[in-house]
Design a binder for these strands. Structure first.
Length: 422
RNA sequence: GGAGAGAUGGCCGAGUAGGCCGAAGGCGCUCGCCUGCUAAGCGAGUAUACUGGGAAACCGGUAUCGAGGGUUCGAAUCCCUCUCUCUCCGCCA
């Protein structure tokens, strides 16, 4: 959420910057509503000031019969106030409606672009494997090794659900533990295990609601939602809090399953394990001072990259352009891992700086000293990494001519010493 | 699921025959004084949001005692609804 006052005073500039996102954002509604609201607010508050003053006078009059005139007068003032209160309530709601659906302003370093083809490749790491045979897609490898069972996943639930079996299940679990140990041990993140379903306030705090409800699974009869990413519960840990400056930056990591409806991606990635309604992810979340957030973003990106480096998976870093960054983000780097079967890089992590956009929605502030005014923190997060896609990358990149798959050395301790699958 | 108790400022904790309560007191914190160090002591200050004025320092208004409604000239105090916490019983991984 943008600051209403800032928006009011910089309406044109903000409009221009938001336009680079591609989708038209109209600020007219906000402007008009904001003006009306302040008008009503002012009349209302001055009437309340009168009422407070006169009521105070009435309280000092012993003989209330002498106050009847003023009491009658105030009765009318109160009527008027009540009506203005109602108007104000609906105007507030309307204004919030505008503010909650206006996306974040892209950072000045976010490349301006019209579509994802304008994203900018920053760097590459690793060597793309050369195969002496035709590399298979991961779903064939997984089925041949009997570690990924798509048919039974669909039987148990439906399309885009998969049953992991035996070494597949173990590999998934090993990756989770490997990532968490790396981030808590070497990168100094604090591990969290949050609830996998959250309430509406939490979803609004990080920006999934009110605009993107159709992407979420909601529980029938309860206003709870299955989390689409650990970003939601972990960022909301400090919703409504004032943190101590001395404690910043806070770094949290969390494993959670993620649940997404994937509405609007019906034709995409229909085969395999790339796009599921439920998938595992290890997430990195930071809360920091505004001045530090862009430095912290680079560090966060490095922390996520380290996972791929230790696993020996080739990847590249892409800086998303204004047309491709998410609703809440000011700047985003994607990490894309090499997938031989698709002969291309595919997203495996997305690292974003939200600046104070989420912090303002969720009211997450800090006080530099005990006397200082509270300021909004900056929030960041990134996948570290998407576990299912990491498993896919391992199957495809480390597949052998005989159909087996080599397990990365770093992962072997987590696999009971196993060196290959099959 | 059944029965009861409670939710006040950073924390603890007063306040329930409605008015002078943004809210006593204590702790904590900040600044100053004092004591040759430490401890103690003394004085002052110490919420947030919105909004009007001002270049700013700052000054004014309104709101906030879990949340939302209601009664009233006026509500932390009365009424209703909801949420959460705690205790006991039942059930359960």
């Amino acid at each position: 959420m943008l600051d209403a006052r800032y928006l009011r005073e910089n309406l044109d500039t903000v409009g221009t910057r938001l336009a680079t996102r591609g989708s038209a954002v109209s600020l007219e509604g906000f402007k008009e509503c904001d003006a009306r609201r302040r008008e009503v607010l002012q009349e209302n508050e001055s009437l309340k000031a009168v009422r407070n003053r006169v009521s105070e006078e009435i309280s000092r009059i012993r003989d209330k019969s002498l106050a009847q005139g003023r009491i009658a007068e105030m009765r009318e003032v109160s009527q008027r106030i009540k009506s203005l209160d109602d108007q104000l309530r609906s105007l507030d709601e309307e204004l919030q409606g505008y503010l909650l659906t206006i996306p974040n302003i892209p950072h000045e370093t976010t490349p301006v672009g019209a579509s994802e083809s304008d994203n900018v490749e920053i760097r590459k790491w690793g060597v793309v494997p050369a195969f002496s045979f035709d590399p298979k897609p991961h779903w064939e490898i997984g089925e041949a090794l009997d570690i990924l069972d798509f048919e039974r996943g669909a039987k148990l639930t439906g399309a885009r659900f998969t049953l992991c079996k035996d070494a597949g299940a173990k590999l998934e679990r090993a990756l989770i533990n490997f990532m968490l140990d790396l981030h808590t041990g070497r990168h100094n993140y604090v591990e969290m295990l949050p609830p996998f379903m959250v309430n509406r306030d939490s979803m609004t705090g990080t920006g999934q609601l009110p605009k993107f409800e159709e992407d979420l699974f909601r529980l029938d009869g309860l206003d709870y939602f299955l989390i689409p990413t650990a970003e939601v519960p972990v960022t909301n840990i400090h919703r409504g809090e004032i943190l101590r400056g001395a404690d910043l930056p806070l770094r949290y990591t969390a494993y959670t399953p993620c649940f997404r409806k994937e509405a609007g991606s019906y034709g995409k990635d229909t085969r395999g394990y790339i796009r599921q309604h439920q998938f595992n992810k290890v997430e990195l979340v930071k809360f920091c001072r505004p001045d530090d957030s862009y430095r912290e973003l680079e560090l966060l990106l490095n922390d996520a990259e380290t996972v791929l480096q230790l696993l020996g998976l080739p990847y590249r870093i892409v800086e998303l352009c204004t047309a491709d960054i998410g609703f809440s983000a000011a700047k985003t780097y994607d990490i894309e891992v090499w997938l031989p079967s698709q002969n291309t890089y595919r997203e495996i992590s997305s690292c974003s700086n939200f600046e104070d956009f989420q912090a303002r929605r969720a009211s997450i502030r800090f006080r530099e000293t005990d006397k200082a005014k509270p300021e909004f923190v900056h929030t960041l997060n990134g996948s570290g990494l998407a576990v299912g896609r990491t498993l896919v990358a391992i199957l495809e990149n480390f597949q052998q001519a005989d159909g087996t798959v080599l397990i990365p050395v770093a992962l072997r301790p987590y696999m009971g010493g196993m060196e290959k699958i099959g």
